[in-house]
Deep mutational scan, measured.
Amino acid sequence: SDPSEDRAPESARVGNIPSSTSALKVPQLKVAESAQGPAAAHTTDTAGYNAMEESVSREKPELTASTERVNKRMSMVVSGLTPEEFMLVYKFARKHHITLTNLITEETTHVVMKTDAEFVCERTLKYFLGIAGGKWVVSYFWVTQSIKERKMLNEHDFEVRGDVVNGRNHQGPKRARESQDRKIFRGLEICCYGPFTNMPTDQLEWMVQLCGASVVKELSSFTLGTGVHPIVVVQPDAWTEDNGFHAIGQMCEAPVVTREWVLDSVALYQCQELDTYLIPQIPHSHY
């Protein structure tokens, strides 16, 4: 159930021909089969995070001529859309010479989310990475209204306002976009420790780096000194050995919190207090 199309920051360009055919990675995205229709094609874990990302398996898109002007500035990904909605975005992107990729990268400028009429969405990996990267996180209605009015409308009017977990109007995407000089995790050293489900560890690490944190791979690698705040992030329900995560405190002095601390902080683009996310640790033995 991992969102495989989000696994690594590679891009698939639509609308320009790469210098070599080997560089072309066409979105071959799968549809989750469901008797209840597209709305039930998501699996949500206890964290309220949509693990099964969206989309559609299609034939290789038709490439435009390399001489045609390509908008190098805009690059989009989509999240939560049905196959039909994805194809509408594809046509919109081609019309406006926008790069459409299946994986979010540093070059991505827009994340197009499936939302309700009030621009509230589910939480997906692309949603988190879009906010963390200060990108435009907009409703699919931006595409449909632009098509209806036959011009590209202003993104401000379609920015995602909230999500089904953290609140319907928290304005996290807007706050992140306007606060890239004040990253929420700066001054923190974060170790993403142990197993994680539904989200590859490297993507979680990239997320906290985008928010200004330094990533530490091992508990023994924390910088011990003033001005640096170490934090260990774990996902308790992913551990097979009972309560192993309670013993992390015996290996390092850092506070240990659940992954929800990261996800909530990123969604709201406000660093949350650790208290409600802390995992009790077995104290050091004193002999």
Rank of each mutant, 00 (worst) to 15 (best):
R168D: 11
I98R: 02
V112F: 00
F185P: 00
W261A: 01
M152T: 00
G249T: 15
S285K: 14
D157M: 03
Y140I: 02
A8P: 13
K60S: 11
L100V: 08
V216L: 14
P236D: 03
A51S: 11
L129K: 03
I282Y: 05
C121A: 10
R161D: 03
E107T: 15
T67P: 11
S4Q: 05
C252L: 07
E149R: 14
V262A: 12
G133V: 03
F141I: 02
T43L: 06
V89S: 10
C191F: 12
P255L: 04
Y49F: 13
A8M: 10
E253S: 13
Q270R: 11
K114P: 01
K151A: 11
S22L: 09
E10V: 15
Y140P: 00
Q36A: 13
V165H: 05
M76A: 12
W239R: 10
R161E: 02
S66F: 11
E107H: 03
Y193S: 09
E189H: 10
D237T: 11
K148L: 14
K135W: 03
C121N: 01
T44H: 12
P18Y: 06
C192M: 02
F128N: 01
Q281G: 06
S11A: 06
D2S: 03
V257S: 06
R175P: 00
G187P: 02
H170L: 03
F196N: 05
C271P: 10
F119Q: 13
I282V: 06
L63H: 02
H97T: 07
E149T: 14
K135T: 08
E155T: 06
A8T: 07
Y90T: 15
E85L: 03
S57T: 05
A23L: 14
H286F: 03
T67G: 04
S11W: 09
I190S: 00
V262W: 00
C191G: 09
M76S: 03
Q28G: 07
T258V: 05
R69S: 08
V256A: 04
S179R: 05
G227V: 05
V70F: 09
Q145T: 12
D163L: 00
L81M: 06
E205R: 08
S179K: 00
V262E: 00
R13T: 15
E54G: 12
G194A: 14
Q281D: 14
F128R: 01
A247T: 09
E5P: 07
L129T: 01
L100A: 05
H97P: 10
L29H: 09
H286K: 07
T99I: 09
V31L: 09
S11D: 05
S57L: 07
V164L: 09
N198G: 13
R150T: 09
K126R: 01
N198P: 08
H246P: 12
R94I: 12
K25A: 09
E260D: 05
V257R: 01
D181G: 09
E84A: 04
G15D: 06
H229W: 15
V14A: 03
R69T: 14
P61N: 09
V14T: 11
P61D: 06
V262H: 00
Q209K: 10
N102E: 15
F86A: 06
I104N: 07
M251P: 15
S57I: 12
F185A: 00
N50F: 13
K135F: 12
M52D: 12
E84R: 08
R186C: 07
T201L: 13
D181S: 09
R7G: 13
G15C: 08
L81V: 14
F185L: 11
T109L: 01
S19M: 04
G162V: 00
A117T: 06
P195Q: 15
R7P: 06
K95Y: 14
A40W: 15
A23S: 12
A93T: 13
N169P: 02
E54P: 03
I184F: 05
N16S: 08
Q209R: 01
V56L: 13
L268G: 10
T109S: 12
R150S: 15
D275R: 14
T258Q: 15
A8L: 07
S1V: 09
V160F: 00
W261C: 01
G80L: 09
N50A: 10
W136T: 06
A117K: 11
K217N: 14
Q250S: 14
N50W: 09
I190Y: 01
E10N: 07
L219S: 14
R13G: 10
T108A: 05
I282A: 13
S20A: 04
V89T: 09
Q180I: 08
R73G: 12
D157Q: 13
A65G: 12
G172T: 08
T82F: 04
T101R: 09
S55G: 13
E218G: 13
E253C: 12
I184Q: 01
P3T: 12
V262T: 01
D6L: 07
V266L: 05
R69D: 13
K174P: 01
I104E: 02
I17V: 13
E59F: 10
E53G: 09
I282P: 15
N198M: 05
T21Y: 06
T108V: 14
C271K: 14
G15W: 04
K183I: 10
V31T: 05
N243V: 14
I184L: 14
R150I: 05
R58I: 06
E53F: 09
K30G: 13
A254Q: 13
K91A: 13
V256S: 14
T44Q: 15
A35Y: 04
W261R: 01
E149S: 14
E107P: 07
D116H: 00
Q270D: 01
G172S: 09
